[in-house]
Design a protein around this nucleic acid. Structure first.
Length: 892
DNA sequence: GCCGTCACG
DNA sequence: ACGTACGTGACGGCT
């Protein structure tokens, strides 16, 4: 068997990866997309070729012999993007860390290195595979030298493979003749001139016929007069071109095959770098090489079913908790409880399945006994909100006897430390804090439910459970230390941890929805939609799927010939702002707009919400605490934070949200909380004064900006001022404002300039926000919540601007999120303390909806008012609008 | 699984 | 020149 060597054209593959993979940045702001793409391509080829040897060749950033002989060589090539450049040396270091042979050679290019190694290796009896993004290398092709050119197509990479016969099929010339083709036609990207007027077609034809450039020179008389002139007048230049495009195969490299062996690619050094660059899905490659750390622990995972043993474990847990020691807890529950895992130490990690005498009641009882003994945050877990569900489902106990401060939720803690992350599960925590890559749920128990997994693959289920409890316990103090270091311990302990209990209660309570009303409304919508459909089909002259932007685009812009105002990546934009413009001239478009609106209402709200109404006539949506980068909470399954309010047709959905019998709703929302926060944080006297004198804030802004007495501010001026106020909060840009107000960016800029002239301290404030964020790499709220902004380090103009807008917005939006979280906790605590039946049901960013017992309305009104208004002490007052009603529409 | 669209703050 | 306002989630269509 011939041995095989793979040769990679480092620069060209890295470059291809850079443009093929969207920008990626690690937490330090280092761009990693090219490296990531390179590794993907490299692993793919290693996998396919299974070579014995591997070498990656790179250019050096110094002139080569080509530059010396022809000073215009690569002259017009524009400088590479800095995001690319910075990755070149990093890539080389990364490869070296993987013990991969990286070769460079002063005075020569990567092509020459590859050419030399390829030819010598082939001569020495190896199979050679060259991987490059560049067709220039095709000239190296021969029986045992294959060229592979990866192409990034959407849906994966395709590879073009070239052996000599493929080169001939594709180009009609042999690999060696390819050099002459190239010399004749030139190469604009390398600034090689070639003969004027001779392109790829002609050059190929001539070489196919005459076999070499020199032979073409011999037969100039047989050419067309123009070609004869173009080539004949440039013979010297063309000879030089040929030297330039000929890849050297005799460079003195001192290449040793032994040093190109593949050995120990996945070692501790490379692991560090993979982790640093956040190549998460590649870390599993290290598994079989670095298992030591994990295996030890896996051996200590133990399933315990013997009743007396379970008793012993719980007794030990109680002892530990009593003496102030932390334990790790993971609860495995879906429809029902499968079991719990307890981690007491590195040696004692137990999975206790829920079976036999060890039933749910038993487990809950014993666990609660331990929790009640905890003085301090000793019960370490993740997803505490769902753990509470398990602790609460028993009929044996009152849930409220469990002390809140017994728990520590490591995922919520990690969210504060890195709110941009997408996951805070045990896999992510193990990577971040323990440098290990542990199997994810999907790897252990596939798509099975937990119940099914316990029957089919119990061993993996035990591993899944124990791993979690083990990791939670392991990382807890690291996370606490980091929170303290970053001054977020208070935020964690006094805001995020207590909030878990509030959100749990809200989810548990849910909100009542009138199912029949929803179903009826769906039917009404269906009827209207059908009528609109008929009218649209008639106007279009055919039936089509109006919900398909693609089909709709064809009808509107091709068949009906409407002017194209805006395009998307994949075709014509049919977004509502575009359609609204068209509606003036084409009445059919109004029907389409209405159809869209009603279709949305029907699918998302009428039919969508109906699905979620439970046996208790209530919707129990999920409030997620670890999603947003700014600190807001989000709502899913269903999303109850985007129930319509602005449009008449949509509003009606608020009517189906109703309180239970004997209860009412109180809805309270902050009045312009973000602008008030801006007033406070900036300390701007004018804005503070406006709020303290209780004038309409947008009117006051208009008065200042347009230099008009308050009473004379026109509606238009007020509207403009309002838009500017929003703009300030979003991170102002003249372009965004101009779009919002349908004015020119120039006019928008004037408004902004005028605003900043009127409010200089606000300008200073937001400039300061950006400046601080640039200096620190993150923004910060009044309550110390951080948001890292890696975008600020981008050299891409757009991205940096985006980072700047985030830096302006995040502290304001985040502080508002902090404040309403405080309010929620206070309202929750007060309701509980007063032993009231009323409870929070929804939070919509600046609004709280409370289901209130009819005999508690006045008390609860006071609690809400106090809780919200006094949630933070600002330089301006926090005002709320509060209403009582019999449905959500009525009280908002 | 991504895109375009649109619902909310 | 670049080509956008900040933060979310769900749906239908399409690949």
């Amino acid at each position: 068997m011939r041995k095989k060597i793979v040769l990679i054209d480092g620069h060209s593959i890295l470059n291809r990866a850079f443009y093929g993979i969207p920008d990626l940045t690690n937490s330090e702001g280092i761009h990693t997309n090219a490296m990531y793409g390179f590794l993907n391509i490299m692993f793919k080829f290693l996998d396919e070729e299974k070579p014995d040897y591997l070498t990656v060749a790179f250019d050096l950033p110094v002139p080569t012999f080509r530059h010396v002989m022809y000073k215009e060589y690569k002259g017009t090539r524009k400088a590479a993007a800095p995001e690319f450049k910075q990755q070149v040396p990093l890539m080389q270091d990364l490869l070296r860390s993987m013990n991969i042979n990286v070769v460079t050679c002063e005075g020569f290019e990567a092509d020459d290195i590859i050419g030399t190694i390829a030819k010598t290796s082939a001569r020495d009896g190896l199979d050679v595979v060259i991987v490059s993004g560049d067709r220039d290398l095709l000239q190296l092709c021969e029986e045992h030298i294959k060229i592979r050119i990866p192409k990034t197509k959407k849906g994966g990479t395709e590879v073009e493979d070239y052996l000599p016969e493929n080169v001939f099929e594709t180009y009609g010339v042999t690999p060696l003749e390819f050099i002459d083709v190239k010399a004749l036609m030139g190469d604009t990207s390398d600034n090689i001139p070639g003969a004027p007027g001779i392109g790829e077609k002609t050059a190929t034809k001539l070489i196919a016929q005459y076999k070499s450039m020199e032979n073409v020179f011999e037969h100039l008389d047989e050419l067309k007069p123009k070609q004869k002139e173009n080539i004949g007048n440039n013979i010297e230049l063309l000879r030089q071109s040929k030297i330039l495009v000929t890849i050297k195969t005799d460079v003195d490299l001192g290449f040793k095959l032994e040093s190109a062996g593949l050995d120990d690619m996945f070692n501790a050094d490379s692991y560090e770098l993979f982790k640093r660059y956040n190549f998460k899905n590649m870390l599993s490659k290290f598994d079989k090489n670095m298992p030591q750390k994990e295996l030890e622990v896996y051996d200590n995972f133990k399933e315990v079913t013997e009743f007396s043993e379970v008793e012993d474990i719980f007794n030990k847990v109680k002892e530990m908790v009593e003496s102030g020691k932390q334990i790790g807890l993971a609860v495995l529950a879906e429809e029902s409880l499968s079991g719990i895992a307890l981690s007491l130490s590195d040696e004692e990690i137990y999975y206790i399945p829920c079976t036999g005498f060890v039933n749910e009641n038993y487990l809950v009882t014993r666990l609660r006994e331990a929790i009640k003994l905890a003085d301090g945050r000793l019960i370490v877990t993740s997803g505490l909100k769902s753990v509470l569900k398990f602790l609460d489902t028993t009929s044996l106990y009152e849930y409220s006897d469990v002390p809140e401060n017994a728990f520590l939720d490591v995922s919520v803690g990690e969210y504060l430390l890195a709110p941009n992350n997408e996951s805070y599960d045990y896999v992510a925590l193990a990577r971040t804090y323990m440098d290990i890559n542990v199997p994810a749920r999907a790897e252990l128990i596939a798509k099975d439910s937990l119940e099914k997994a316990s029957q089919t693959n119990n061993e993996n289920l035990v591993k899944y459970a124990c791993l979690q409890s083990y990791i939670y316990l392991k990382v807890a103090n690291n996370i606490l230390d980091n929170l303290k270091k970053m001054d977020m311990y208070d935020l964690f302990i006094n805001m995020e941890m207590p909030l878990i209990f509030v959100l749990y209660e809200m989810e548990k309570q849910g909100v009542r929805v009138d199912k029949q009303e929803l179903i009826d409304y769906s039917a009404v919508l269906a009827e209207k939609i059908e009528a609109l459909e008929a009218s649209i089909y008639k106007a279009a002259g055919e039936e089509f799927n109006i919900n398909s932007p693609k089909q709709l685009g064809v009808i509107l812009f091709e068949k009906l010939g409407m002017p194209v105002k805006k395009k998307t990546k994949s075709g014509y934009s049919t977004a509502s702002d575009v359609l609204e413009e068209l509606a003036v001239d084409y009445p059919i478009v109004n029907d389409i707009l209405e159809f869209r609106q009603l279709a949305k209402l029907k699918s998302t709200y009428a039919d969508g919400l109906t699905e979620y109404i439970g046996e208790d006539s209530r919707i129990h949506s999920n409030f997620n605490q670890t999603i947003t980068a700014t600190g807001r909470i989000s709502s899913t399954n269903p999303n109850l934070q985007n129930i319509p309010i602005r449009m008449e047709m949509g509003k009606l959905f608020r009517k189906v949200f109703i309180p239970r019998e004997g209860f009412s709703f109180i809805d309270a929302d902050y009045s312009q909380i973000e602008l008030r926060i801006l007033a406070h944080m900036s300390g701007d006297e004018k804005l503070i004064e406006s709020y303290n004198s209780d004038v309409d804030i947008h009117r006051a802004t208009a008065s200042h900006v347009f230099n008009t007495p308050l009473e004379e501010v026109t509606d238009l001026q007020r509207r403009n001022a309002k838009a500017v106020n929003f703009g300030i909060i979003y991170g102002i840009s003249s372009f965004g404002l101009s779009k919002d107000l349908s004015i020119s960016p120039k006019e928008a800029k004037q408004y902004i300039d005028q605003y900043f002239e009127s409010y200089p301290s606000i300008k200073d404030f937001i400039d300061g926000l950006v400046e601080n964020a640039k200096e620190n790499g993150y923004s910060i709220t009044m309550f110390n919540r951080r948001r890292p902004i890696p975008e600020l380090k981008a050299s891409n103009f757009m991205q940096k601007k985006f980072g700047e807008r985030i830096a302006m917005n995040a502290p304001i939006q985040g502080t508002a999120a902090d404040i309403i979280k405080i309010a929620m906790i206070r309202v929750y605590d007060e309701l509980k303390k007063a032993n009231l039946k009323s409870h929070l049901v929804l939070q919509v960013h600046d609004e709280l909806l409370v289901e209130v017992a009819n005999d508690e309305i006045e008390k609860v009104r006071e609690i809400i008012e106090k809780g919200m208004k006094e949630a933070a002490k600002l330089k301006v007052s926090l005002e709320i609008d509060l209403n009582v009603g019999k449905n959500w529409l009525e009280c908002h």
